[in-house]
């Protein structure tokens, strides 16, 4: 039985028994090399579910809107499961709100280029970190040798060049907020960009306001980022957003000890909401 068969069978059982009210997976798209996320509540629809190398979307965040309707069944790979951990730790959902069917993931393929997606070549945890049952076995996959290679690339640039590089990024950004909407860390009930009273970010789409958004986004999610790379994948302007996220993660790593967010439900507080008396002192 393939993982896809198991997913279909289990989804049907779960929906029929009423254990879950809805089930989230992927369905085949119009084209063979395309899938789209699928939310079903009718057991008869279970056969629409697919699992193949084109399942590019990370599913965790869909759960947020489904939970009020009842327990949600969900297929989770490494990235989806860490997204779920994130949502649980951030009190967006509760552990008992979701039923997780884990699958090992060999990485997915960019349908345009036929190459593995960037986020998958960078992936360090392709098997679920939490799940209720596994569909198929865990999959062995090489983790990238250097987690921060792209950050170091930028760090090696001279200062004015770096400045220009990021200004060009912010000049391209159209502030569609796709990166925010897809991010399992971005679960505020109202994003700071929409706060009218504080008016953190102006309505204009210009470099300055985009910079405000970009920098603040990283400060907000940096110590919780699960490195799923979805922000980068969904960016319609192809901005290298993970270069920013990973910069913060790299610094947290260097300064406050090895850090990888959302690996289990009982992690201590994130590095930026805790402290250590022995922290490095550089502001004296």
């Amino acid at each position: 039985m393939t993982a896809q068969d198991t997913i279909r069978a289990r989804a049907r059982e779960l929906l029929e028994s009423g254990e879950v009210a809805s089930f989230v997976g992927w369905e085949a798209g119009r084209f063979a090399n395309q899938t789209t996320p699928l939310i079903i509540s009718d057991p008869a629809d279970a056969d629409k579910l697919v699992f193949n190398e084109y399942c590019v979307n990370t599913l965790a965040k869909y759960v947020r809107d489904l939970v009020p309707r009842g327990k949600v069944g969900l297929v989770v790979r490494g990235c989806d499961s860490r997204g779920i951990v994130r949502l649980i730790v951030d009190q967006v959902i509760k552990r008992e709100d979701v039923y997780l069917i884990g699958v090992g993931c060999p990485g997915v393929i960019d349908r345009k280029s036929g190459e593995p997606l960037k986020k998958c070549t960078e992936c360090r945890h392709n098997n679920p970190v939490i799940c209720d049952e596994m569909a198929g076995d865990e999959v062995a996959k090489d983790a990238p040798a250097d987690r921060f290679a792209e950050v170091r690339e930028v760090e090696l640039m001279a200062q004015p060049e770096r400045s220009r590089y990021f200004e060009s990024i912010y000049a391209k950004c159209i502030r569609c907020y796709a990166c925010r909407d897809v991010c399992p860390c971005c679960t505020c009930r109202e994003c700071f960009v929409d706060a009218r009273r504080e008016n953190w970010v102006g309505k204009q789409n210009n470099v300055a306001e985009n910079r405000f958004y970009g920098l603040t986004r990283v400060m907000h999610i940096g110590d919780r980022c699960i490195e799923c790379g979805e922000c980068e994948r969904v960016c319609p302007m192809d901005l290298p957003l993970m270069k920013l996220n990973r910069k913060v993660i790299q610094d947290l790593n260097d300064l406050f000890g090895e850090f990888e967010s959302s690996m289990s439900l009982d992690e201590g507080p994130e590095p930026l909401i805790t402290y250590d008396l022995a922290d490095r002192e550089e502001f004296m």
Partner: peptide, 18 residues
């Protein structure tokens, strides 16, 4: 102590951006 951590990260981020 919280400020120290936050500012260390933020300063590095700003410098990273040039």
């Amino acid at each position: 102590y919280f400020a120290r951590r936050r500012m260390m990260i933020f300063k590095r981020l700003l410098e990273y951006e040039g």
